[in-house]
Each structure stands twice: as structure tokens, then as C-alpha cells.
Write a protein that binds this DNA or RNA. Structure first.
Lengths: 192, 192
DNA sequence: TCGTCTGTCTAGCGGTGATAGGATCGGGTC
DNA sequence: GACCCGATCCTATCACCGCTAGACAGACGA
């Protein structure tokens, strides 16, 4: 069975290559530039090979999104762990989230803007997505306030961050007030 | 000069038809279904005619966005006017905003998700967009709180609403808590 | 009535995501 | 060692996309 195992290894390696390359192109030139032809050329295979790994372009976006969710969860947890006290943790979390969105726009889009065919907020939601939400919940649950459902509070806080991130990035919010907006959001939403 | 005037009237009418039809297709089947070919067929002209009115598909999206901004401003103002007191006005505003986003998804996308080539948050921002922001500011400025810049507060509140609207609509937030999220947001952000 | 000129159309460019079907290459069997 | 067969990959193609060049016709002013 060694031959088959080697083939599976190679196949898995190529799949990782596809996802990594798609992400690379997307970060450099935007998702519009991630065409099946360009992607195939970069990995030095023909176009149809992509379809033996993924059902279509949507699934490739979804794969990038899952990768990104794990990274974002780690970034958020690291930022929170480095801060002292609930209030400081929330500030650090907000900054980490917005930083991630700004510095990894393509991955962020794959997660929260584009359709990657992923299921959110259900039982069969992929683990990385659940875990990313859990990472937010860990710090935000502390400041939800009495009688407020931590999950619902996290949803609201997350939505606000998402709005700030996307509207700012698309030029719909003036960049000069970014820091003041973040501070105001934390001030008002978090119950210390 | 009557002939020329008639021609200009007809031309303006056709331009309105293009925008209205684009919007119609988008609301029914999504923006992906708004192709220049389909759009041209629906208005019973050939494809290149679109390009004598708009520089490209992006500008058509922009035109729909401007229409939508005017409508949203009116909806928000109407909701606020029907409420008594600053706090009630903000609640009404939030509901009106989220209702608009949910019931006019294509127009909402044209305004805040897609690239319609419009300039936001600058001096040369189109009037309808400025006015839509002003409509939010009118009610939200009342509850910004002391020492908080009303514009910045409006940006934060708007971002939160935008996050709720888009994440909910794409299935990334569980629908059953929608009302609780809205209440929580207003409770925390608005200073009565 | 006759040129001109505006306006519209047909046809086509280079690109997209996705797929059908033929060629090829390697492993397993005799 | 020879052969067969199945998995694997590629070429070629489909229908469609946004956009544009250039031919054509019809209405206008002289």
C-alpha cells in the first residue's frame, strides 16, 4: 500500500499548493485575478486538475477561508493573552481583528465577504470557523454585562468590527478617525 | 431646439430605464445575473447602447447605488420622524436601516458592498450619499454623548448596523437572535 | 434634394468558469 | 519480461462575460 500512500501524499501536497497559490495571487492582485487559468499555470498543471481537488472556484475560496480562520483565531488569542484585565483584552482583541483584516484583505474577504460555500453559525459549521468565533467569545464574554447572552454580545461586537473593517477598507469611512472609532466602540460596548 | 430637447428627454428616459432594469434584475436574481447582454435585451436595445450612457457596468451599479441612497435616507428619516424622543428615534432608525438592507439586498449591495466607482466620505462625494449619511447623523447625533464627535459616533453606529446587516444576510449570524442584537446595540451605543 | 452626421447595430476581441473525451503512464498480473 | 487496464492528466471546447471597432441607416440642416 506504499504506492497508494505516496500518491495520496502527493495529492494532498498539490491541494495545499493550490490553496496557497490562490491565496498568494489574491493577496497580491485581488480575488478577481484568481482565475482558474492563472492558478493552473502557476502550479504548473492544467486547468482541469483544479476540478479534481475542488468542485469549483467557490470551494477554493472556502479552503482559503478555513486557513484564514485558524490564523485569525490565533492572532486574536495571542493579542488577548498579552493584555492585562478584561478591558485591555477587549481593546487588544479589537485592534488585532482590525489589523488582521487590513493586512490580510484577501483572506478576510474569503472568510466574511465572498461566498466560499461554507456554513456559518450551525451545528455542521467547520471547526476552524467555530473556533474563530470561540476565540472572540473568550475575551468578549467577560465584558458582555449582566443578563446579556455572551454569544449574542459577541455577535454584536463582531458585527461592529466587521462593519468598521469593511467600510474602512473600501474607502467608505475616512481613515483619519479609525483609532477614535475603535476606542469609542470598545468604550460603549464593553461593560467593565 | 425642440427636436434636440425631445431627443434629450428620450435619452434621459432610456437612461432611467437602464438603471431601473438593472436594479430589477439584481433584486430578482442577484447582481451576477446583471450582464450587459441580459440588460440590453430587456431594454430592447443592443449591448453597445449601454456604453453610450455609462462608462461600464460599474457606473450602472453606481447609478443604482445613488438611487438607493436617496430612498434609504427617506426611509430612515420617516422612521425617525414617527418616533418620540431621542432613544426611540435611534431604535426606529436601526430597525429601518436593517429592514431596508433586508428588503432591498441588491440596492444595499450596490451602495455598500460592490464597487460602483463612487467616492465616499470626501468633499466630492455625490449628494445622495452625503444626504444618506446626514439622515443617520440627524438622529444619531442626539445620542452621541458628551465630548463625542457626532460624525465619528455616526460612523461607528453605521458600521455596526452594516456589519449586522451583511453578516446576517449572508447567513453568518443566526437569524433567531436578530432582534436581541439590535436591542443590545442600541442599548449600549446610544447615550440617553 | 442632397450631403452630413448622429445614433444604433452586427460582429468580434480576449477573457471567464467549467467539462468532455482522448492520450499516456504506471502498477498489478500472468 | 510482456501485457493489460485503470487512474490521471491534458487538449480542445462550450457558453458566457465585459467591452469595442466599424459598418450602416435614418434624420437632420443647408
Amino acid at each position: 500500500m506504499s504506492v497508494q500512500e505516496r500518491k495520496e501524499r502527493e495529492r494532498a501536497g498539490r491541494e495545499r499548493l493550490i490553496v496557497a497559490t490562490a491565496r498568494e495571487i489574491a493577496e497580491q492582485q485581488g480575488w478577481d485575478a484568481v482565475t482558474t487559468r492563472r492558478l493552473a499555470e502557476r502550479i504548473e498543471y492544467s486547468q482541469p486538475v483544479l476540478y479534481s481537488h475542488f468542485r469549483g472556484k467557490r470551494e477554493i475560496i472556502g479552503a482559503v477561508a478555513l486557513e484564514g480562520a485558524a490564523e485569525m483565531a490565533a492572532a486574536v488569542r495571542a493579542a488577548a493573552a498579552a493584555a492585562d484585565g478584561p478591558r485591555a483584552r477587549v481593546t487588544a482583541l479589537a485592534r488585532a481583528y482590525l489589523d488582521f483584516a487590513e493586512s490580510h484583505p484577501a483572506v478576510y474577504d474569503a472568510m466574511f465577504l465572498l461566498d466560499g460555500g461554507l456554513v456559518f453559525a450551525k451545528e455542521d459549521t467547520p471547526e476552524p470557523l467555530k473556533d474563530a468565533f470561540a476565540a472572540l467569545l473568550e475575551s468578549l464574554g467577560e465584558v458582555a454585562g449582566d443578563g446579556v447572552h455572551p454569544g449574542v454580545f459577541t455577535e454584536v461586537f463582531w458585527s461592529a468590527l466587521h462593519g468598521l473593517a469593511t467600510l474602512a477598507r473600501s474607502g467608505r469611512l475616512p481613515p483619519e478617525y479609525a483609532e477614535r472609532r475603535t476606542e469609542l466602540l470598545v468604550d460603549r460596548l464593553a461593560v467593565v
